[in-house]
C-alpha cells in the first residue's frame, strides 16, 4: 500500500464545539482518501457530458456555495429550484439539502450527480469512468487497499474530503478561544447581544444553526417549493427549510433557499417587515423581529465576525491542477 495512505489524517473537533454527528467510525480517514475525495469533487467527468463538477456550484471562495447565483446552472444550462448551499462543518449536520431529504453525509454526493438538472450522470457510469482511469485506480488502491472502484468507496472518499472542510477560524472563534488580537469592538459586542436576543434560537452557537426545519415567512414564489413537506408529505412541514448557518455570509450570497435576497440588509428587512403569515410559519416569527436601525448595523458588525477568511483560502481544499 502507498505509504501516504497510512498517514493518519485527524479530524479535530474545534474547542468548545459539540461532538460531530459523523465521526468516521466506519470510514477510516486517510490522506489518500481525502485526496481522492478532493480529486473527484473537482472532476467534471462525474457529470454526464463531462462539463460540471461538484466544484462548479460549490466554489471555495464562495464558502463552497455559488456567489451571485440564486439557483445554480447545471448540465446544458438547466436551472434547479434552489440555491447551492455552502459546504462547511458538514459532519455536524443531521441531514442534507434544504429539505433534509438525505439522511447521511455518505449518501449526499449521489443526489447532485444523478439529478437531471445538475450533473445528470448515473453512479454506475461514474464507477465505469473512474475504473477506466489508471490514476484513479491507483488512488483507490492507496485509499482502500485495492483498485476496486465502487459507489460505496466513492461515497466514503467524498465524505473524507467534504467532512474535513471545517470553518472554525473566524474572528468570533478566536474571540471565543481568547486569542490575542481578537477582542470584539463595542459595536461587535452590541451586535452579539442583538444576535443572542433575536437570532440565537434557530441559528444556535457555535455552528449558528440548530439544523431544524422552519418556515421563516418567505412568500412562496411561482415555483411553490413545498420544502420539507416534499420529503415528509406532511402538511405541517409545508414551506419549511433547513436553518442555514450564519457563518461566512460575506462569501455565500445570495441568501435563502432560492437565493432571493442579495444582501444581508434585504434579509433583515424581511425579518422586520416582510414576514408572511401562514399556518406553518414558525411561531417565533409570528410577530416578526423588531430591530432599530442601530441594532441592524450592530448585528451586521457581529455577523462580520463569523466570516472565516482562512477557510475560504485554505489550500488544503483547493483543486490540485
Amino acid at each position: 500500500m502507498d505509504v501516504k495512505a497510512e498517514l493518519p489524517l485527524a479530524f479535530n473537533v474545534p474547542q468548545g464545539w459539540p461532538s460531530p454527528n459523523y465521526n468516521y467510525t466506519n470510514n477510516q480517514l486517510s490522506k489518500a482518501g481525502f485526496e481522492l475525495g478532493r480529486k473527484m469533487f473537482y472532476d467534471a467527468r462525474l457529470s454526464k457530458d463531462n462539463t460540471i463538477s461538484c466544484g462548479s456550484c460549490h466554489q471555495q471562495f464562495s464558502g463552497f456555495a455559488q456567489i451571485d447565483h440564486p439557483v445554480s446552472h447545471g448540465i446544458n444550462d438547466l436551472l434547479g429550484n434552489r440555491n447551492s448551499p455552502p459546504l462547511f462543518n458538514l459532519n455536524w449536520h443531521t441531514s442534507f439539502m434544504w429539505d433534509g431529504g438525505i439522511n447521511h453525509i455518505e449518501n449526499q454526493p449521489i443526489a447532485p450527480i444523478q439529478n437531471p438538472v445538475e450533473m445528470d450522470e448515473t453512479m454506475a457510469n461514474v464507477v465505469t469512468k473512474l475504473q477506466g482511469d489508471a490514476t484513479y485506480r491507483s488512488m483507490f488502491k492507496a485509499a482502500f487497499g485495492d483498485e476496486t472502484v465502487n459507489s460505496q468507496r466513492i461515497a466514503k472518499a467524498f465524505a473524507q474530503f467534504m467532512g474535513m472542510i471545517v470553518s472554525s477560524n473566524a474572528k468570533y472563534d478566536k474571540y471565543k478561544r481568547g486569542e490575542a488580537g481578537s477582542a470584539f469592538t463595542q459595536q461587535e459586542m452590541n451586535g452579539y447581544d442583538v444576535y443572542k436576543q433575536n437570532c440565537a434560537t434557530c441559528h444556535t452557537e457555535p455552528l449558528f444553526t440548530d439544523f431544524s426545519f422552519r418556515n421563516n415567512g418567505l412568500p412562496p414564489t411561482g415555483v411553490n417549493d413545498s420544502g420539507r413537506a416534499h420529503i415528509t408529505l406532511a402538511s405541517a412541514d409545508l414551506y419549511k427549510f433547513k436553518t442555514p448557518s450564519l457563518r461566512n455570509l460575506k462569501y455565500t450570497w445570495p441568501y435563502m433557499h432560492d437565493g432571493r435576497f442579495n444582501s444581508i440588509d434585504q434579509v433583515l428587512n424581511h425579518y422586520t417587515t416582510g414576514i408572511m403569515q401562514s399556518p406553518t410559519l414558525d411561531n417565533k416569527l409570528s410577530g416578526g423581529i423588531t430591530l432599530t436601525d442601530k441594532q441592524k448595523e450592530d448585528l451586521k458588525a457581529f455577523l462580520n465576525t463569523l466570516n472565516d477568511e482562512e477557510f475560504v483560502k485554505n489550500t488544503m481544499f483547493q483543486e490540485v491542477k
Binding site: 439522511n103 449521489i110 466514503k156
Partner: peptide, 24 residues
C-alpha cells in the same frame, strides 16, 4: 441500513432500487 450511509453489494445504490433525493 437505510440510515447508516453508503452500502455495497446487493445494497449498492446503482441497482435502481434506491432513492437518492429522499434517502432510502
Amino acid at each position: 441500513h437505510n440510515v447508516s450511509g453508503a452500502q455495497t453489494g446487493d445494497l449498492d445504490p446503482n441497482s435502481g432500487m434506491f432513492w437518492d433525493w429522499n434517502t432510502g
